[in-house]
Design a protein around this nucleic acid. Structure first.
Lengths: 283, 283
DNA sequence: ACTTGCAGATGACTTAAACTCATCCGAACG
DNA sequence: CGTTCGGATGAGTTTAAGTCATCTGCAAGT
């Protein structure tokens, strides 16, 4: 006893719609195909499933019972499938406001262009219920996150609005925006290291802090001072000649962007997105 | 989005059994086919459904969810199908003790021989809950049953044990078994008509009645007298030279065997059986 | 009553998919 | 190490799924 699932599908549709023609439309087939399928089914099962009254058809008792079960069964399968499909072609990312605003959102379009079948949703804030298919891109401490989860090691430098006169560190007081994370567990931006490396320990800097790098960068863009922030975030702004860096050297930090359980993501969309984001973060 | 149902079936099996090889056995396919199906599924859905760890596989989260739904869905369909199949290749008949004992049961084997795929269950008595797939063969009044439901019009005659000396109706008293139905609505056996037709109104008959023809026939077989009964029932016994008839003429009656809703039976087995029974009843 | 149109049945043919075979790969186990 | 086992991959083949052309039979319109 071997009945083909397609035949059952054809039957289910015909039973539900009450017509071979309509079933054919629904399944993008010809009415002939439906007729063949149902004929096949009936002969294999040795039962009539439809009464044929000329061009009008109606289910037999057995047909009704079978239709009920198949409809329910296929409905169950279809809805699960639909869910999987949805999960399969949309990528949900959640990350810090800064990374979102400076990197992800500006290049979101580019990714969708390159992957027309994938739609991307970006959200910020931690409140999002950790659905299995939401990809969190977090800022963390290199010493505590899994090596394989890291997608970008952060280095820091000082930047200012494009075209401004280079700061003279010794003489005038300089406004420098930096960041103090709300999350105290995170390593602070390596400002001391940077000053050392660039021989500016004695510089006359006036520090102003925000809890997100984004705000300092905006201040710098507005010409209200310089910003000490991660190179990742400003990369795009440098290329766009909105910000510039001076002849200072960047310093590495203990910070990195990472995705917890990076290789546990099941959808190809997620994998594609992760590879892509890693690429653009690392040039 | 088009995913093949066979692919889903392959996935469901592989998920349930935890191995492509076992799924292949279950579906009578090669492991290669399973692999192809699942690969196809994964690429169409853009998700991984299994983690491959060398030769060991395990479901991903999405895989688990999908497997749950597909298993349930297919199980539902399969069980309904199984029921239909069972209904499709067994025929249940219920009828009078007489017809069952004298006709149906003796020729049951012959039918099953000719239709090896159909199994027949015969039961007597009215108690059977009228399941839609039980075929009732009833004795009824030709004037009340639908013409199309009739499978055999009854005529009556007198029979006796094979080889007995023909009765001399005039002289000796003759024991004649006949039937008085428990159901008073049924037309009585046309004994008066028969006596008239054969010019035996004056015969010296001693009537004994049972409520089933079967018993009278058995008495006649045992040589305890003659029986006035329907020709249908004794046909086989005549051919087997167990009973014989004399030079009397049979009379028609208002009785018939019929199947209520004869043409509403959905299974081919039922149709086949009905045609067959109609054939043997009418020679 | 005779068309006309529609829905389905039937059979021959074509195409697409499902399946297999041959081969390869990598993990586990002796 | 080499062997075995389960799965992946790609090319080739078979099967069944679908279409086309034709036919039937009911129903509605004229």
């Amino acid at each position: 006893m071997q009945v083909s699932l397609q035949a059952l599908k054809a039957f289910e549709s015909a039973a539900r719609r009450g017509s071979f023609k309509l079933a054919a439309e629904e399944l993008s087939l010809t009415p002939t195909a439906i007729s063949h399928h149902i004929g096949n089914l009936e002969s294999r099962l040795n039962v009539s499933l439809f009464h044929r009254q000329g061009r009008r058809i109606s289910l037999t008792g057995t047909g009704i019972r079978l239709a009920k079960a198949t409809s329910e069964g296929f409905r169950k399968i279809d809805s699960a499938l639909e869910e999987v499909v949805k999960a399969g072609n949309t990528v949900r990312v959640t990350t810090t406001s800064s990374l979102a605003a400076m990197v992800l959102i500006p290049s979101q379009h580019e990714f969708e262009q390159a992957n027309p079948d994938i739609s991307v949703e970006i959200s910020t804030g931690e409140s999002v219920d950790s659905q299995s298919y939401i990809i969190p891109v977090r800022l963390g401490d290199v010493s505590v996150v899994e090596d394989s989860d890291v997608i970008r090691f952060e280095s820091f430098n000082v930047f200012g609005a494009y075209g401004m006169t280079p700061p003279s560190w010794e003489s005038e007081p300089i406004t420098l925006f930096t960041t103090e994370w709300k999350n105290k567990a995170l390593p602070a931006p390596p400002l001391t290291n940077w000053l050392e490396k660039n021989g500016l320990e004695g510089a006359n800097v006036q520090l102003k802090t925000f809890d997100q790098e984004l705000f300092g960068i905006q201040q710098a863009m507005a010409g209200n001072g310089l910003v000490f922030c991660s190179t990742t975030l400003v990369d795009r702004l440098l290329k766009a000649n909105v910000l510039q860096h001076f002849d200072t050297q960047s310093v590495t930090s203990d910070l990195c962007y990472y995705v917890p359980g990076r290789d546990s993501f099941e959808t190809r969309s997620a994998a594609r997105f992760l590879n892509w984001i890693e690429d653009i973060l690392n040039q």
